[in-house]
Design a protein around this nucleic acid. Structure first.
Lengths: 221, 221
DNA sequence: AAACCTCTGTTGTTTTTACAACATGTATGA
DNA sequence: TCATACATGTTGTAAAAACAACAGAGGTTT
């Protein structure tokens, strides 16, 4: 495996806190495999069985579904340092629910995560890797739960109040900056930007908060 | 620990495939603790640090949030055999984002999941438990992803088509039964029941599918 | 069979949202 | 400073959804 690529590993959430030589040793014992893909090439097909986690080393990929009526739905994009297919690899019975294609020339590192659980193989670095994977799954879980909580509110007003309330909780203060522009926020909670902008004005007028750009100050009422 | 309760453990997703005596041994080494709660008692408060996973042994609990403007939002309910707080326990930096209260007299088994990763403690049953936890996290992830995909579509029509397409994919056939009544489906995708019913009729008339109650036959067009 | 209940579909009305078009604000570099 | 580009706010209109009220279908109990 190329040294330059291994160096980059430490930047990924998965190998965080694991020494480079340790990472190399672990990956070798896990049947890790580097594969190159051309722009547009299919890396993983919907419906296929996935045993291994994919770590994007170089390039970027798009995850999408094709529905029953052949309409394409883009799910997400993953870049260098990020992983995909981890949920399918960690759940023995799951098949991939999406297709993955390379956006550009891309290098993927594949490795079998379940192998790492083998009883005879306990050591500190492996433990760290398992912890990192569990952390990753847990964090994704929390992020998905949080987003779902906002998105599944019925009205734009409820979505905004749910989101802002959560931001205040995370900031530990009624005054905070959100990590989104207006357009990004609208996409995140799944509504139209201009309608959302109007709703924000209305809520501010009603006294729920003051806002300027990404800065918010919530008001008890 | 009471034998009767330990017997029930095998029904939980977490201890699936682990022998009763093994489960007992593991739990003792993990500082497992049984606690009883009265109806209405708070089991876990939003904002607190959580080190241990909670497994509901008897009774049931409600997970909810109180937002900035003191409005209560019910997130979910967990019953005997199910776990909660697993994502907070698996992500060292996370604090609980919700409060948990007992719906009735409830028994909770608390245990430290990160302890199980200790290097000196590798054995088959522990490996199975780790695998089960990863499975649980992965399955939740997939379920959340799937629901989010449907809920975040903009219109009722898009939500329905997204949901039905996914059901067809999971069934491996264009003909299938959905696991929901109309009201449950409306709640799941986050829309009004009667409006959804009307939309279903419209889509059926437009030729997307035929449906009777929970039975659907999708049509290519 | 009759009475009852729950689920589902339909329709008219009200409310909310999306959409489009444009105005204003803000940051950036020539 | 001016020109420019992009983000944000505003408004009117069309479309969609929520809501409410009711009717019929299906199933269950007596």
């Amino acid at each position: 495996m190329r040294k330059t690529l291994l160096g980059d590993l430490r930047d990924s959430e998965l190998f965080h806190g694991i020494r480079r030589d340790e990472a190399r040793r672990i990956l070798e014992s896990l049947d890790a495999q580097l594969k190159n893909y051309r722009k547009g090439q299919t890396i993983l097909s919907a419906g296929s069985r996935v045993r291994r986690i994919a770590l994007v080393m170089e390039g970027s990929v798009t995850l999408f579904q094709t529905d029953f009526w052949n309409r394409q739905i883009i799910i997400d994009r993953r870049r260098s340092g990020q992983i995909f297919a981890e949920a399918f690899a960690c759940d023995r019975h799951a098949l991939s629910s999406f297709t993955v294609q390379a956006d550009e020339a891309t290098v993927i590192l594949w490795f079998d995560i379940m192998d790492i659980l083998k009883v005879d193989a306990a050591d500190e670095s492996r433990t760290a890797l398992i912890r990192n994977i569990m952390n990753t799954l847990a964090m994704k879980n929390l992020a998905l739960n949080e987003k779902l909580l906002h998105v599944s509110r019925r009205s734009t007003k409820e979505k905004l109040l749910s989101f802002l309330s959560d931001e205040a909780r995370k900031a530990g203060s009624s005054e905070f900056d959100i990590p989104f522009s207006r357009q990004e926020l609208a996409d995140y909670i799944g509504v139209d930007r201009s309608a959302m902008s109007a709703e924000l004005s209305r809520l501010a007028r009603e006294g729920y908060f003051e806002t300027n750009r990404s800065h918010f100050i919530l008001k008890k009422m």
